[in-house]
């Protein structure tokens, strides 16, 4: 959508900087694929764990906590997916999502051990 604005830049510098900054096509594809996998699969894992943890820790009756966590889950998933493509560094996305998921999984495990499901 922004091509028209970028086109307005002076042609010479545009071409030069684009050439200097542009990685080879395969790198770009790999990058997109890595972000796509992170957004879809790690993003789902992260959103699912967030939902489960929120359902455990939110105050109020458990039917309410479960519902609140589930209603929020899609916002979490969408935000994570957007971030996966917004961050300048792909490795940071992967690290953030795996570390975050690991942390959430630990909290969930602890919570389930302390107070089992009914």
């Amino acid at each position: 959508m922004t091509t028209s604005t970028t086109l307005a830049a002076p042609p010479a510098t545009k071409a030069k900087s684009a050439k200097a900054a542009k990685p080879p096509p395969w790198r770009r594809r790999l990058d997109v694929a890595a972000r796509g996998v992170a957004a879809i699969f790690l993003g789902y894992l992260f959103a699912a764990l967030t939902t489960a943890v929120l359902a455990r820790v939110l105050p109020g009756p458990r039917a309410e906590a479960s519902m609140a966590a589930t209603l929020l889950s899609f916002a979490v998933y969408a935000s994570v997916a957007v971030w996966a493509f917004a961050d300048a560094k792909t490795w940071r996305v992967w690290l953030g999502l795996t570390a975050g998921s690991g942390l959430l999984a630990a909290i969930l495990w602890l919570s389930l051990t302390l107070e089992p499901r009914l």
């Binding site: 699912a48 764990l49 939902t51 489960a52 359902a55 906590a65 589930t70 889950s73």
Partner: peptide
């Protein structure tokens, strides 16, 4: 997203 329910039930 069944995980919110799965976590409590």
């Amino acid at each position: 997203m069944p995980w919110g329910v799965q976590a409590n039930y």
